[in-house]
Nucleic acid binder design. Sequence first.
DNA 1: TATGAATGAGATTTCATTCAT
DNA 2: AATGAATGAAATCTCATTCAT
Lengths: 210, 210, 210, 210
Amino acid sequence: MGKIEQNKKQKRTSLLFSAYELFTTIGFDKTTIRDIASRAGVAKGTFYLYFDDKYSLRDQLIRHIASQLLISACASMEEYAAQQAEPITVPDKFVYIIDYLIDRADENRPILKLINKDLSWCLFTDDIYAAAPGRIDEPGSIDFVSYILNMLEADHVEIRDLRLLMFTLIDMINSTVYDAVLFGEPVGIEEYKPYLNRCIRLLVNDAIEE
Amino acid sequence: MGKIEQNKKQKRTSLLFSAYELFTTIGFDKTTIRDIASRAGVAKGTFYLYFDDKYSLRDQLIRHIASQLLISACASMEEYAAQQAEPITVPDKFVYIIDYLIDRADENRPILKLINKDLSWCLFTDDIYAAAPGRIDEPGSIDFVSYILNMLEADHVEIRDLRLLMFTLIDMINSTVYDAVLFGEPVGIEEYKPYLNRCIRLLVNDAIEE
Amino acid sequence: MGKIEQNKKQKRTSLLFSAYELFTTIGFDKTTIRDIASRAGVAKGTFYLYFDDKYSLRDQLIRHIASQLLISACASMEEYAAQQAEPITVPDKFVYIIDYLIDRADENRPILKLINKDLSWCLFTDDIYAAAPGRIDEPGSIDFVSYILNMLEADHVEIRDLRLLMFTLIDMINSTVYDAVLFGEPVGIEEYKPYLNRCIRLLVNDAIEE
Amino acid sequence: MGKIEQNKKQKRTSLLFSAYELFTTIGFDKTTIRDIASRAGVAKGTFYLYFDDKYSLRDQLIRHIASQLLISACASMEEYAAQQAEPITVPDKFVYIIDYLIDRADENRPILKLINKDLSWCLFTDDIYAAAPGRIDEPGSIDFVSYILNMLEADHVEIRDLRLLMFTLIDMINSTVYDAVLFGEPVGIEEYKPYLNRCIRLLVNDAIEE
DNA sequence: TATGAATGAGATTTCATTCAT
DNA sequence: AATGAATGAAATCTCATTCAT
């Protein structure tokens, strides 16, 4: 039981991990179920006990990765904030988090490629798969919007249309950073970053209720 | 000569058009070369005289469609502007154009699906294919940035970092509208539109040099 | 287990056999994988579970056929030798075996066509495929040279450079018989046979150590 | 007229030459008509004005090359013979010629690959193509057997079954050298050469009428 | 004579998915 | 639960050859 559950969880993780490795090295399209299964050390048929298909697995994987990224971005920001003499403003926090994410994307382009421009979809779509019958459930992504909400509350800051702001920011950032990092179009990421930061501050400041 | 060239152009157009119909009805993935060719009334092999593969055709098609869309958006805006008693401001023009595009996207979701979130890539990447040897050349996409530049000049308005502004706006709009229209996430397009307009005005106004 | 193995062996044999039939009737080039598979009653994809491609299958088939031919030639020779009052000489044995093979070739030209001039390659190249991972193993070809060696030993005959002699004889015979049988060039096989026999005796006698 | 004929001959030569280059570099199978034509600087359709198909071209090419090889082998032998103090024997002449050919084969394996084991076919089959209607005729291969015949006559040597001897020798040599040079099976060419020479002398001596 | 656009049959191969064991 | 043999649809793309110009 416990053991069996353990075993199952391990298999699932193993499949996810080997898929992750293959997607970020040889690419999603070129990765086959056989590849994923054999690298995970299970039979091809076993794959289907854990995932519906390659696409479903990718979705779960992206959500997981995006979630992890956001968690570490927030953690890093909090650590940074704690180190400052003065408390930092909310727009600063936003910019910090975003800078952190951009750096991660720039360092790890295969992941950026994998996530594509689907970050907002990860955050604003419910985890359907988690409730799928017969599927092993997983922690699920953090509720990023709630996290931000809490942060704002703690800072006694109110933001208009928070969900829409978040959505807009995330799509804007995800999309532009994707293009700038992967294609250098129309400018490279280093050149684009200050411009993007200015835009973010503009939108955030505008949303802060006086 | 003239006849052959004519014929070739017609074949190419025919292929593009049948691809367009298939992509927007049964979807890109499910469309096969055989489908495209047979619907265009040519042999499968003929397809390869005009396009490298399905992906190349899609790229050309998207550019073409995006180009057409922008052309008609601008035309519509000019017509509208001409009808007004007072000259309209630059941010108004931006908003008008974008509203126009959103409406087209909303009306014609298959095209939105096809264009995906690649609009900025269409506008900021050079047309390599147009110069491809042995390929039939086509008009090429309008230079949208130049168009805007001319418009600003005529209005005696200067905008800081125009290219970056355009890029940011386009990616932001394309991405958010895609999500809002196709998934209704996190809100439907009607609800999102005013919010988006506010964001656009904010960014444009900020970029206008006093 | 036993059942599955059985089944696999049968499928492989079935594929080989249907390939054999097709190669010898409509020819190697005109035979398609689809033909082979459908005649064997398996799916096209299944073919690829057993063989790398058409060429690999042909090689294995040729080796198998050549092997079978040599086995029956030797057996026939031994039977014949046993019937004689006097023991027959080693050159006689060679000539007998070769005559036997020539008759088979003459009777069954499609096989000759299939084997082409590659007989020595069948005998002197190691069976790599037999050990191929994931492949169903098969008996493998008889070691013809060893067989001859044993024969000579039993007859207390020593032959200089046996391997080279065998190689030279086989290539000479295979090549000339191929041309004589299939093209009648420069003479038909019946006319050529006595000449060839004389050549064989010459080379064999020269190699026998006194 | 003369000019047109010239032009045609040149085109044909050009096609043959570009085919030769392609066959010996990327291989016969991988060479396409398009490749041959484009390298020869003519249109694809033009190819068919000169040759029936790739196979026909190959045959003509092989004959041509084989012819050239034999011509230069004989010339070299005669030059060598002239340099010797004593006249050399007929078997020596055979061995010289064959050694010359082996060296050429060893030096230029792509040609050996191209000729395959078809040398005797080149020499003993009539040039059908030369008489093909509407085809440009070419010098045709030297009649090797006649050449040898003349040589023997000049040396006052009579050989039994000359045609069969030549055929047997050529097939034997072509086949064994092909295997030894290209595969080193069962031994490399250097090791095999002396053995082959002995065989040749044996067969030639046996055929010389006393 | 020369061209090269068009043809379209056809070959190979992959791979997600199923299902008997 | 796990396996992996079998499936067979499907897809791409090539290439010899024709024929209108």
